[in-house]
């Protein structure tokens, strides 16, 4: 029976690896076409894959070891002696130092990406805030400055508004000012690998750079990632990434609709 159990645990590990291996093909993996659509997102994916490789090797190694000791313990003969050992100093040293080195490497290696995203260059002060995104139960309200103007912290008479539709120019870093009107929410665009909580009382700048055009049916999805009440699951919005031209045209069109009170037409 012991052999059976040794195989049982090894088989579990093998199945886990196999399922992980086939997951991308089954589309149980990164959303959309599987690729990040921002440069930052690409870096995050690289890091994810690096960690995945390290972790997989560790997983396979430890489970191979586990399988071996189980098999050995299951097949030990009655006359064989049990290994009477309280441990091994040199082994302890090895399996302290080696993982410590690997872990330190991971820790240091990724700092750069985080610094880029949140701390160092591209600091939100240098990027242009295209819109203010205000989360509320249970929708996203978005405010754009009028053409040629800069986004002001407080609403302006000529601001342009949309609900659940965020339009941004593509091809360069842009930022949004994230707020919430009521409870906490979180701004999450899976395909950009961007996420930031919206915190009551704070305005948090979030920057990202969309690589390609994503318009029309192809627009990306924006979801809420922080529990905000019963309707948390229905804060469904879209992010349209367009060329500068398209973006301006769209803004003109929306502004036109917004400020059109029907009065002008009658006067003509």
């Amino acid at each position: 029976m012991g052999r059976f159990w040794a195989i049982f645990f090894v088989a579990t590990a093998v199945i886990a690896v196999a399922v992980s291996w086939f997951s991308p093909a089954l589309h149980w993996w990164f959303p959309g076409d599987g690729k990040a659509h921002s440069n930052l997102g690409l870096r995050i994916d690289d890091l994810f894959h690096l960690i995945l490789v390290i972790v997989s090797i560790t997983f396979i190694g430890t489970h191979a070891a586990l399988g071996y000791v189980l098999w050995r313990g299951a097949t030990i003969k009655p006359e064989d002696k049990v290994l009477f050992s309280h441990g091994s100093h040199s082994l302890e040293v090895i399996w302290t130092i080696v993982p410590a080195g690997i872990l330190l490497f991971i820790a240091l290696y990724q700092m750069d990406v985080w610094a880029k995203y949140r701390v160092k260059s591209f600091s939100p002060a240098e990027t242009e805030a295209v819109a203010e995104v205000t989360a509320r139960q249970f929708e996203w309200r978005i405010r754009y400055p009028a053409r040629g103007k800069k986004l002001q912290p407080t609403p302006q008479p000529d601001d342009v508004y949309t609900v659940n539709e965020l339009h941004v120019p593509t091809g360069r870093p842009v930022s949004i000012s994230l707020r919430t009107e009521d409870v906490q929410h979180s701004f999450f665009v899976p395909e950009l690998r961007v996420k930031q909580d919206a915190v009551p009382g704070l305005v948090i700048p979030v920057w990202f750079d969309v690589i390609d055009r994503r318009t029309g049916k192809n627009a990306m999805e924006l979801v809420c990632a922080e529990l905000c009440g019963w309707g948390h699951y229905k804060m469904k919005a879209r992010v349209f990434a367009e060329s500068d031209e398209e973006f301006e045209q769209w803004r003109e069109k929306i502004a036109g609709e917004q400020f059109d009170d029907g009065f002008k037409k009658a006067a003509e």
């Binding site: 430890t62 000791v69 313990g73 064989d80 049990v82 290994l83 441990g87 399996w95 993982p99």
Partner: peptide, 16 residues
């Protein structure tokens, strides 16, 4: 991690 290795070490060579 150290604990995990030590558990595997404990199983190693035993009469399970």
């Amino acid at each position: 991690a150290i604990k995990t290795f030590n558990w595997i070490g404990t199983i190693w060579g035993g009469r399970l």
